[in-house]
Design a binder for these strands. Structure first.
Length: 232
DNA sequence: GCCCAGGAGCCCG
DNA sequence: CGGGCTCATGGG
């Protein structure tokens, strides 16, 4: 099987096994009393798009449940708002996102991102050339490759494949890449062998995360991974 | 007590 | 350019 076919086959099998994941979870527009990010919604409002961007920062190297609490707390304090984030003092912001861990760092990051978005609003980034938008995002202190690509894919809806530690772990497990493969290398593998499809890229990344939770979170990684027997 | 979670920046050779 | 260190809470 070619790599192209393998990558597509993996996607189809994961989708069949787990069903659509509906990433990225966002709080419904009308739900302001008891905010909670829900899977399977379309981020239609500007606030929902901003929630995804802030969420991408807050969830860095953190369990989603811990990040989710922080996002809900931001929401309740009317901080899914660029200007309010810029206004609030670091110490107070830190305490609000405490549950997500690295709260001092992440408070600074949220401010950096907000200042950036004031200069380059979401709508402006959306119209921009794909490579240019990614480059600008990466220039923000606190936005690395995975966070930039998550924003590109889930907020700006650009056809970029999001790579994370899990993606690599699974691909190494299936002997599709070497364990020293770089971020860009892995991203190229997906983007050069698959149709550039935003909807599919969103699902694929989410499915890989789900697959990791089941088969690649405890060593030895991928021991009972059902893909191993089917992907040759 | 340990390990890990939907990473990134900085420093150092 | 790459490896090691730091940032930190909460659940298993």
């Amino acid at each position: 099987m070619t790599k192209e076919n393998k990558l597509l086959e993996i996607y189809n099998m994961l989708l069949k096994e787990y069903g659509p994941q509906g990433w990225w979870p966002v709080t419904p527009r009308t739900c302001n009393i008891d905010p909670k990010p829900i899977y399977g919604l379309k981020a239609s409002s500007e606030k929902q798009k901003l929630e995804i961007i802030f969420g991408a920062v807050v969830v860095q190297n953190t369990a989603w449940k811990n990040a989710e609490k922080a996002i809900i707390n931001l929401y309740k304090n009317d901080l899914i708002d660029i200007n309010n984030i810029i206004k609030i003092d670091n110490e107070k912001l830190s305490s609000i996102i405490k549950s997500a861990g690295y709260y001092n760092e992440k408070a600074k990051k949220l401010k950096n991102v907000s200042l950036f978005l004031k200069k380059y609003p979401i709508k402006v980034l959306q119209k921009m050339d794909l490579k240019k938008a990614r480059e600008l995002l990466l220039s923000v202190n606190g936005i690395g490759p995975e966070t930039a690509d998550s924003i590109m894919l889930y907020t700006l809806e650009k056809p970029i494949f999001v790579v994370d530690a899990y993606t690599k772990r699974i691909l190494v497990g299936l002997n599709l890449i070497e364990d020293d493969a770089s971020y860009d290398e892995i991203q190229d593998l997906f983007m050069k062998n698959l149709k550039l499809d935003v909807k599919m890229f969103k699902e694929y990344h989410a499915l890989l995360v789900e697959h990791t939770k089941r088969y690649y979170s405890t060593k030895p990684y991928g021991e009972y991974c059902f893909l191993k027997h089917k992907i040759i």
